[in-house]
Design a protein around this nucleic acid. Structure first.
Lengths: 126, 126
DNA sequence: AATGTTATTGCAACCTAGTTGCAAAATTAA
DNA sequence: TTAATTTTGCAACTAGGTTGCAATAACATT
C-alpha cells in the first residue's frame, strides 16, 4: 500500500468532508469539482482516502455511490455497523450514530450489514 | 394501471421465479434469457411484475438490481421489511425470513429500510 | 536548490447497467 | 374476425464508473 500524497486535489476533497458533515454522492462531487479536477481524479482520490481509512463508502438509492467522513466514528475505525439515512424529500444522506443489531441467521455467517433507512430528515419533517 | 398480459415471455420469467427460490439478478436474467427475448423485454417484464406485486426488487453489491419472489411473504404484501443476504463466496442472494427492528431516530421519520447482509451461506459455510 | 524516484493527474476511450422512442407483432375483448 | 390495447424487438442512447498511458507533481535525498 503506497503512501497517499497531500496534493492540491486531495486537500480540496478533504476540506469538503471537513466542512460538510453529510455524506456526499460521487456524482455530486464530480459535478461540483468540475473545473478543478478531472472526474477520474475524483474517483481515484475517494478510493485512496477510503483505503487509508479516512472516509467510508456505501450505496444509496439506485446503487449510487456515497462517501462520508463519519464524525461519530473513531478516527481509524469505520468497521462498526451504523445505518445510513437518505431523506426522500431533500435528498440529504447522513450517517446515523446508532448501533444496528445484526440478526443471527441459522446456517449463515454474517460478516457485514448495509442498512439504508429512508424517510424524512429533521429539516423536512412536517 | 394497465392489465398485465400473460405472454410467452412473461411465463418464462415467472417460471424462473417458481423454480428457483433465490433472488435473481437482472444481469443474470438478461444473460440467461438471451436468445429467448430482448433485454429491454426482460427489464420491462420485471418492472410490470413488480408493479403487480408478484415480485419485489432490491439492490445488491455495487448497486446491482435483484428481483425475488419471496415465498415467505404473503402473496400480495411485500411491504414488510425483511433483510436480504448475499453470499460473498458463491454470490447467491436470498430473502431472509426474519423481521428487522427499525430503530427510532430522533427527529427523523423512517418509512423504509433496506438491509443487505453479507457473509457465507449454508452451502459455503466451512 | 537540484535530482531521482514514485505517486498522481488528465485525457480520451471504453465498459456496463439500465432507459427510450417507435413501428411491428401479439393479446385480449367484443 | 375485427378493433383496441398491450407487448416486443431493435437500435440508439444515457449515465456511472473504469482503464491505459504519457505528462506532471510530490517528496525524500543529496
Amino acid at each position: 500500500m503506497s503512501i497517499i500524497r497531500r496534493t492540491k486535489s486531495v486537500n480540496i476533497i478533504l476540506s469538503i468532508f471537513e466542512d460538510r458533515h453529510e455524506a456526499q454522492s460521487v456524482v455530486d462531487l464530480v459535478e461540483q469539482l468540475k473545473g478543478q479536477m478531472n472526474k477520474t481524479t475524483v474517483y481515484r482520490i475517494l478510493e485512496r482516502l477510503e483505503n487509508e481509512g479516512t472516509i467510508h463508502s456505501f450505496s444509496g438509492t439506485n446503487g449510487l455511490k456515497w462517501y462520508a467522513k463519519c464524525h461519530q466514528c473513531s478516527t481509524h475505525q469505520h468497521n462498526d455497523i451504523h445505518p445510513h439515512f437518505e431523506c426522500q424529500d431533500c435528498g440529504k444522506v447522513e450517517c446515523l450514530d446508532v448501533n444496528i443489531a445484526i440478526p443471527k441467521i441459522d446456517n449463515h455467517s454474517i460478516e457485514s450489514a448495509d442498512v439504508l433507512l429512508k424517510g424524512q430528515c429533521a429539516d423536512c419533517i412536517g
